[in-house]
Design a protein around this nucleic acid. Structure first.
Length: 594
RNA sequence: GGAGGCGUGGUGUAGUGGCCUAACAUGCAGCCCUGUCAAGGCUGAGAUCGCGGGUUCGAAUCCCGUCGCUUCCGCCA
């Protein structure tokens, strides 16, 4: 029996309910207590004329006490029913009360819905988890993960667990290292993902694998990044990009339909090449719920006398613009704020043009000819009443600045409908990118991604041009997951490693097991890894993944409840052969616990 | 590593140079109250305004530094 089950038809039954005191209303005579558990609220009545001793006991009860109440389900008197409660037609007339535990006044109100300082919430996460918001998020997360398991199991996938103690591979994110007393001086690493393991499962012939996999990356936190997070990890043999996309599309359609009230914007999910996404949105994970696309207006200024534009164009830069419909009347303050947004993203400035029927007003109008301005506005079909906002710089900066501007405008103008989920695929990412600091090519995604056969001849001559068989699923501007078709022949994999500057010795040390396995009849295979935390966050309309993780760490990666990480004793360190530099012997925690 | 925002009773906020002896709501404590459900009424406790320094006759308020939280960039194969 729970606090959410009793209804009209239970009237007259004797029941026992257990739960927490949500609220107590002591009217002097009769006392009402709303008893709460995961399933709901039930009003308990303590009537001094029916059970005086029980009533007396109830007057000492406080919020969050844990009670067991024995009583009889009664119909509520006419006019006192509560339509806001599922159990609002009835109440339980208490005949017995047992206080299972008392409770201190909590540091924040369990029933409060307003935002509470997150540090306080994290320090007492078990109380935060008592609140409706997080309980609903946990239930949603469970339902989604369960549906993922069922969906894939029904299609012949098997769930395989892979180890958490593995070998460090210094590529990509920083590893969390784990020492062991058996091998003092050597370290395991926690997996950044089960990437190599799942590929080896394909070599093994377990052609459809999935796992709800915990991944660890020792990198700075973000609203959607935690040092440990969970992925739906998938790998399949004998497939192409489109097979993976279709599989995930089916799954995410089902999840969205079953577990949210959101309308899917477009099905099948639009597919954008990386190039197209960058051109149109300046971003490889565009929020497609609204337009405000980027337009290249460089052509209008090829002959311009305006130095800022002319010089940018002469040095391989570009001028791109966003047309903001109906916003010619942006205030000075709004324009300043938007300029600040683009500046923070690296732009030197933001050129604005308020298009009016008779003229176009702009702070830089005096530097430009009327023809240039007209060529620009007509080229992008700006109408009277529109605001045109432009950035001139090298392409990467333009993309970053206008993408930030676009997101800000979307928010500011309420263009992103929270009831819509706009999925899309972004594919054909570049295989490699040039790392200036290291003076070498590096994988943009993971080093095992295959490349398009038609681009293979560029591999040595123009590596930046080679497109990978790689795809990301994007939803409402969040990267929900990504994957690729892998190199299943050693020679191809070796070719990529060589480009990345690894010697045969390097690759043998780092990826020896995988490379060797490719020599033993590795089938063509590919896969994808979907971020579960991020997806649940989107489905739950939360702004951070901390709201969908039971015990998250804060932005610095600290666990405020358990107070981790923490120093350890010298004896423990001694077993591991580890000594700590004196300047690092700092006390992280000085909380006084009761 | 860099940039922005925030920091005032337990919680959420107001106060942006003197009217602050710091306000409001909620929570908490006590009293009153027999049909409430965000119960109501009365009374009360509770903050040296993150910390340190400075400017000023005077600082929650301005300046500098510092710490914490948070968002973003870098980073995240």
């Amino acid at each position: 029996m729970t606090c959410g089950t009793l209804r009209h038809e239970n009237i007259g039954e004797e029941v026992v309910l257990r739960g927490w005191v949500n609220r107590r209303r002591d009217l002097g005579g009769v006392i009402f207590i709303d008893l709460r558990d995961r399933y709901g609220l039930t009003q308990i009545v303590f009537n001094p004329e029916i059970a005086p001793a029980v009533h007396e006991a109830a007057s000492g009860v406080r919020a969050e006490y844990v009670l067991a109440v024995r009583g009889i389900v009664r119909e509520r008197p006419e006019g006192t029913r509560n339509p806001k409660l599922a159990t609002g037609d009835i109440e339980v007339e208490a005949h017995g009360l047992q206080v299972l535990n008392e409770a201190q006044t909590p540091p924040f109100e369990i029933t409060q819905t307003a935002d509470i300082d997150e540090s306080v919430r994290l320090r007492h996460r078990y109380l935060d988890l008592r609140r409706k918001r997080l309980q609903e998020n946990m239930v949603l997360r469970h339902a989604i993960v369960r549906a993922m398991r069922e969906h894939l199991s029904d299609r012949g996938f098997i769930e395989v667990e892979t180890p958490t103690l593995i070998k460090s591979t210094p590529e990509g994110a920083r590893d969390f290292l784990v020492p062991s007393s058996s091998f003092a001086g050597n370290f395991y690493a926690l997996p950044q993902s089960p990437q190599q393991m799942k590929q080896l499962l394909m070599v093994a012939g377990l052609d459809r694998y999935f796992q709800i996999a915990r991944c660890f990356r020792d990198e700075p936190q973000r609203a959607d990044r935690q040092p440990e997070f969970t992925q739906l990890d998938i790998e399949m043999s004998f497939v192409q990009e489109s097979d993976l996309m279709r599989l995930m599309e089916d799954l995410y359609l089902e999840l969205t339909e079953r577990y949210s009230n959101k309308r899917i914007m477009t099905t099948p999910f639009p597919r954008l090449t990386y190039r197209e996404a960058m051109d149109r949105f300046g971003n490889d994970r565009p929020d497609l719920r609204f337009g405000l696309e980027l337009k290249d207006v460089s052509d209008a200024f090829l002959q311009t006398q305006f130095q800022a534009f002319a010089q940018t164009l002469a040095t391989g830069g570009q001028v791109k613009a966003i047309v903001v419909p109906g916003c010619a009347g942006f205030s000075r303050r709004e324009i300043d704020e938007l300029t600040e947004v683009t500046k923070r993203a690296g732009a030197r400035g933001l050129a604005t043009f308020a298009v009016e029927a008779s003229q176009t007003r702009s702070p830089i109008a005096k530097f430009l000819s009327e023809d240039e301005i007209a060529a620009m506005t007509s080229g992008i079909s700006a109408q009277p009443g529109d605001m045109v906002m432009a950035v001139a710089d090298e392409p990467a900066v333009v993309a970053r600045a206008l993408s930030a501007l676009r997101d800000n405008l979307g928010q500011r103008l309420n263009l992103a409908d929270p009831d819509v989920l706009a999925y899309c695929w972004v594919y054909e990412f570049p295989l490699l990118e040039w790392k200036n600091e290291e003076s070498r090519w590096d994988a943009t995604h993971n080093p095992f991604s295959g490349f398009l056969e038609e681009d293979a001849h560029f591999l040595e001559s123009d590596p930046g041009r080679v497109r990978a068989k790689q795809y990301d699923l994007v939803g409402n501007g969040h990267e929900l997951g990504g994957g690729s078709i892998r190199n299943h022949r050693r020679v191809d994999q070796q070719r990529v490693f060589t480009l990345m500057g690894y010697t045969a010795e390097d690759t043998n040390v780092r990826f020896g097991a995988l490379l060797e396995a490719l020599d033993y009849g590795a089938p063509p295979h590919g896969g994808i890894a979907m971020g579960i935390d991020r997806y649940v966050m989107v489905m739950a309309n939360e702004d951070t993944i901390r709201e969908v993780i039971a015990f998250p760490k804060n932005q610095r990666g600290l666990d405020l409840m358990f107070e981790a990480p923490d120093s350890v004793g010298l004896d423990q360190l001694g077993d591991l052969g580890i000594s700590i530099e004196p300047e690092l012997r700092v006390q992280l925690w000085n909380t006084e616990r009761q």
